[in-house]
């Protein structure tokens, strides 16, 4: 039972992060390797807002979440906008450089020590007992619930929302979308904002559960295979991919070797790339976009 809960929690973490990769990739065909750093930034923003709104933990959390949307949109407006039309490699590297930059700045501002936003907000993290003698921490449970909520909202938005449809249109054929009067910059900024929002949610909830250090982006790097296994342009794929990766990771760590934790996602990824490079649910696109 506990193993099952662990899998669900880990899968939720990966899924929540993976949908950020999917959003940006689907709309602008850019792989955002700074996603982990942006997620970590969200967690650190809670520290900042916690001291700003001392005594109002919910306000502080809300402010941090809103700020993360702004940060995401700003990343697009001030940086990625200049990379439209460049090589894929250049765009990816720009996000890598951005990640490096954010990491450096975070250490400069908040130091490299482990920090606990939950303490700063005076929030407890009790362990809940579930049926079958399984335990789950409060914030992990919140994370699972948030994940379900986020995916539900995103599905609805992309399927039925007017801007959701425009995002799909822009992702498929940006030139034509621009011709039809869709402001690509708005769509892309929206995608970046939403993606950073989901990432920040994941980061904040993880930080509330177990604190935050500079090594948090590694988790996002491990969530990336989840997005790819499911199919980089498919939301549903993100969920399924996360479940697969989390299951494999938890079981292998439990039964084989804890050291494997860092490579399992990438082993699964390689296997997937060999069998079906475009992922379980992804559309089989032309793979040569260099």
């Amino acid at each position: 039972m506990q193993l099952f809960i662990n899998i669900i929690v880990l899968a939720s973490i990966y899924a929540l992060i993976a949908c950020g990769y999917v959003l940006i990739y689907r709309v602008s065909r850019v792989l955002n390797l700074a996603h982990g750093e942006l997620m970590m930034l969200g967690a650190y923003l809670v520290l900042a807002t916690a001291s700003l709104f001392a005594g109002h933990p919910l306000v502080a959390l809300g402010a941090a979440v809103l700020l993360s949307i702004v940060v995401g949109a700003m990343v697009y407006v001030f940086l990625m906008r200049k990379m439209t039309g460049e090589m894929v490699l250049a765009a990816i590297l720009t996000t890598v450089a951005l990640g490096i930059l954010i990491r450096g700045v975070i250490v400069l501002v908040w130091s490299a020590q482990q920090q606990y936003p939950a303490q700063a907000l005076n929030l407890a993290n009790p362990s809940l007992t579930l049926v079958g003698d399984g335990h789950i921490s409060l914030w992990s449970a919140v994370l699972v619930a948030t994940n379900i909520l986020v995916y539900g909202a995103l599905f609805g938005f992309l399927r039925f929302g007017r801007w959701g449809m425009r995002m799909r249109a822009a992702g498929q054929n940006p030139l034509l979308a621009a011709q039809r009067g869709i402001n690509l910059h708005t769509v892309y900024a929206l995608a970046w904002g939403l993606s950073t929002l989901t990432g920040a949610l994941a980061g904040i909830l993880m930080a509330l559960d177990s604190g935050v250090t500079g090594s948090m982006p590694i988790i996002a790097l491990k969530a990336f295979p989840a997005a790819l296994v499911g199919g980089l342009d498919s939301l549903a794929g993100g969920l399924v991919g996360a479940l697969i990766i989390a299951t494999a990771e938890v079981l292998l760590i439990y039964y084989v070797d804890p050291l494997l934790s860092d490579v399992v996602p990438f082993l699964v990824l390689l296997a997937m790339l060999i069998v079906r490079p475009w992922g379980l649910f992804g559309t089989r696109e032309e793979l040569d976009r260099v």
């Binding site: 940086l79 200049k82 990379m83 460049e86 250049a90 590297l93 720009t94 890598v96 450089a97 951005l98 990640g99 490096i100 930059l101 954010i102 990491r103 450096g104 700045v105 250490v107 400069l108």
Partner: peptide, 14 residues
């Protein structure tokens, strides 16, 4: 160093 390297890389790419 990290920060500066990130900035320089971005400047070159952009």
């Amino acid at each position: 160093n990290y920060t500066a390297f990130g900035v320089v890389m971005i400047l070159f790419l952009v």
